[in-house]
């Protein structure tokens, strides 16, 4: 009996540990998912305060966003669909989302884009490449992931008592993106 009890206890502990291992990342993923959705709502608003947005529109005058992925294209596409469902235009201009692999992002765009949205966590090389593209094209690189603004992304979100835009001032200055000073004043800044 005692042996059985011990055996059961071990099993229960094992199950608990497995559940913990299984649930812990899923809980983390869930938080990240929420963060991405919040970011997706803020992203077009931040793009909208770009004072030079007009000059970054392609010939068809669409506001073109690049949704960059590395391995998970379907996710990037799902996010683009989500954005398109909620945001149809920015300042009256239609929104167009291009889902693109990070390896396919060229330093010289053949077609103008308004901003880049990172849809999944990128390794340092790829991330730095995207940041360099944003600087050279003078567009914002938006990353919904925590810590990416500190790594060099132009903008992200700071979630505290309230949700605020989070700017990397160095990257912002380097990319020469001209945003409303009023927004910069009420946003969180990384300097």
């Amino acid at each position: 009996m005692k042996y059985l009890n011990n055996k059961l206890s071990i099993k229960a502990i094992s199950v608990f540990c497995v559940l913990l291992l299984y649930l812990a990342p899923s809980y983390s993923d869930e938080l990240e998912e929420r963060r991405i959705k919040i970011s997706l709502a803020i992203f077009p608003k931040i793009v909208a305060v770009d004072q030079d947005l007009e000059s970054k529109l392609p010939r068809d005058n669409d506001v073109r966003f690049l949704f960059v992925y590395d391995n998970n294209k379907s996710r990037a596409e799902a996010l683009s669909e989500l954005l398109k469902d909620k945001v149809t235009n920015i300042a009256g201009k239609p929104v167009r989302v291009v889902v693109i692999n990070v390896r396919d992002v060229s330093l010289i765009f053949t077609e103008r884009s308004a901003a880049i949205f990172i849809t999944e966590r990128l390794d340092k090389t790829q991330f730095d490449k995207i940041v360099r593209v944003g600087v050279s094209e003078q567009i914002m690189v938006f990353s919904p992931y925590a810590g990416d603004v500190e790594r060099g992304a132009t903008v992200g979100v700071a979630i505290g008592n309230r949700v605020r835009p989070y700017f990397n001032i160095d990257t912002l200055n380097a990319s020469k993106v001209n945003i409303l000073k009023k927004l910069l004043k009420v946003s969180k800044r990384y300097e």
């Binding site: 608003k45 909208a48 920015i90 300042a91 009256g92 309230r162 009023k182 004043k185």
Partner: peptide, 16 residues
């Protein structure tokens, strides 16, 4: 506390 006010329709920043 100062917060930006955006238009939900046009996404533009309307003020603070």
């Amino acid at each position: 506390v100062e917060t930006p006010i955006f238009s939900k329709k046009s996404q533009e920043m309307l003020g603070t």
